[in-house]
Design a protein around this nucleic acid. Sequence first.
DNA 1: CGGCCTTTTGAAAGGATTCAACAATGGTGG
DNA 2: CCACCATTGTTGAATCCTTTCAAAAGGCCG
Lengths: 255, 255
Amino acid sequence: MTSSGQVKFSDNAAGNATSRERCRSCTRRFDSLCGVLDCTELDRLDDMMTHQVFESGATLIYEEDEAESVYNISEGVLRLTKLLPDGRRLVTGFLYPGDFVGLAFHDRYSYSVEAVSTVEVCRFPRLKLEGLLKEIPKLESKLLGMMSNEIKEAQDQMVLLGRKSPAERMASFLLAFSRRRMEKQVGRHFADVPQDDFTLPMSRQDISDYLGLTIETVSRTITKFGKEGIIEIKGRKGICILQRERLEDMAAGLD
Amino acid sequence: MTSSGQVKFSDNAAGNATSRERCRSCTRRFDSLCGVLDCTELDRLDDMMTHQVFESGATLIYEEDEAESVYNISEGVLRLTKLLPDGRRLVTGFLYPGDFVGLAFHDRYSYSVEAVSTVEVCRFPRLKLEGLLKEIPKLESKLLGMMSNEIKEAQDQMVLLGRKSPAERMASFLLAFSRRRMEKQVGRHFADVPQDDFTLPMSRQDISDYLGLTIETVSRTITKFGKEGIIEIKGRKGICILQRERLEDMAAGLD
DNA sequence: CGGCCTTTTGAAAGGATTCAACAATGGTGG
DNA sequence: CCACCATTGTTGAATCCTTTCAAAAGGCCG
């Protein structure tokens, strides 16, 4: 299989930015792996990179395919999915700008990666990047920290999936999303953006497959939160958190 | 809080083995992190290590405590647990000889660690080991690979918790346990030990908290497998797999 | 403005959980 | 060594809650 839905492609020869300038001027640089590199090292990264754009719904990575590339997200939202043979789906996570995808030190990808919105990524050949890792120990350290966070988040998600009620799952999700979104905004110097008011880029189906519920249960739970005045529902995807503390208590399992 | 249930303690001054010999002669050496080290490096590890024994039920690590130590398991089984305020519990994983515990690059532990059986561990001060990591890049690489595996396993477990039926969860668990056990046996040169016949060291409660089910559902599912001739139940903890393929199909979601 | 897809809402069904009682196991002390 | 006790595991019945199935409503795009 090959990636689909890719609408723009720019490599070192044909990119918009001058070669070796793209990484240096990247607004995401300090959010992600690249943040630990100096200019010389950054240029090496730049040399092995291609910038790509995927439209919403496109697949960047197919589960079980050979792991040839890794990606760093510069814009948009991705979802990681795993399928059971009969079509049951689980979304193991959503990824946001600054997040790293695909570097798992296995020969094949163990999940699919799809664009939830239009996405811009930096693509690296996996083996080359692994080579760079071995040469630059601080890259490895940074990655170790990122993976450590990923493990922690995965464990929290296991608690959610294994032991939380639908309302608790939904509360956890809304809070985590609003927090993540705020972090990213702060990173881009928009610290005063209201964190309680946001747009969910993913569908109810995505949310339910992330929370281990059905789409109907997610819908009913969101509606219930709205009726109880915990959130305000603004059209199909807009959410405004009215009672953050109450959501926090629910998410923690205090109800 | 402090660790409880510890029954034996031997540091460099009082240990059984001569100083700097313990790591070198460790039977687990090639299963775990230490496997990548040469003798000189191993001695440095040895110098910062204390050997400890915990009896079944003892707690090595309390969730939220300051992360001062990391452990390498030389014998026995540990469980990692997370609690919700009202007592709901999730076991995020079981750890076996050769596995590493506690190195998460956070200041506080995000889960508790308890002994499922009598356990022998090598204990290291976390900060010292992190220092060693920075000095020995191949240690970091090895750890990166181990964490990568951990993430992959966590994602599989998320699929299990979010989308699999009780029977599918139980099948996945039995197979994973028998596989893990076989790997360890092979590591110790017991390749001819029958892999289909084993003893579960953990209780039904542990299993249900690992699979996101109740103890009754686990019990009923095991009984059902027995009646269907998929496994043979040998007393309280003994299991013999009679139809491995059928279990594999169930675990994969093919039923 | 119309049509399509997503989401919401309703009613019924199914399955895991809960509650309760019983059985088996393993450890302890007589 | 056996009996007893406490703990762990099994089994049964009723309940509750999510899921399933079905249909209507709502939002978004051309």
